[in-house]
């Protein structure tokens, strides 16, 4: 995908995004008191955002096609493997937290992320497990005791 195409697509996305929010701004209730309606300020921002998005679109269309850069042969998933792995594991960390609790879900998250990026040799797995237990254990203890934060215990531990 050339640079021109990408910027044009982003600009179109922004215009649609602005339109959706503008449409949603009509769902905001109006009140009889006060002088500034709750929808006024967001609409002002959306008008500005809309104008800027259109300007961006025009600018993107005016620019000629970007020169094809030499590909390093990596596909999208190959290139962004680590961030994608992070996103998936973080999602699973958050999703599993109500069941496993912050401590177990956190240890699992760090262990899996370290192993996914750092490799899965027996030695590496042991090191990753130790790092995950010590780091999350220390954080959990620090937030729980000195700072007095009640971190999610999780249904799994609550049942025992």
């Amino acid at each position: 995908m050339s640079r021109l195409n990408r910027d044009v697509y982003i600009a179109i996305f922004l215009i649609v995004f602005t339109a959706v929010f503008f449409w949603q701004s009509f769902e905001i209730k109006n009140i009889d008191y006060g002088t500034l309606q709750a929808s006024a300020w967001p609409r002002m921002i959306l008008v500005v955002l809309g104008i800027l998005s259109v300007t961006y679109l025009v600018q993107s269309l005016k620019v000629g096609p970007a020169e094809e850069t030499e590909s390093d042969g990596l596909g999208f998933f190959e290139r962004y493997r680590n961030p994608i792995v992070c996103f998936i594991l973080y999602f699973l960390f958050l999703f599993s937290m109500p069941y496993l609790g912050m401590l177990i879900a956190g240890i699992l998250f760090v262990f899996l992320l370290l192993s996914a990026i750092g490799g899965v040799t027996p030695k590496a797995l042991i090191i990753h497990a130790i790092i995950a237990c010590i780091s999350i254990g220390a954080m959990w203890s620090f937030f729980t005791y000195p700072l007095g934060v009640i971190l999610p215990q999780g249904e799994l531990i609550s049942t025992f």
Binding site: Y90, F109, F143
Partner: peptide
Amino acid sequence: YILAAIILAYCGIGVFALNNIEYDMW
């Protein structure tokens, strides 16, 4: 990657401590 993984987890715990709600982590 070790530093990043630990800090990513810390980010989640730290954010939770703000209001004690999982919504903040999402």
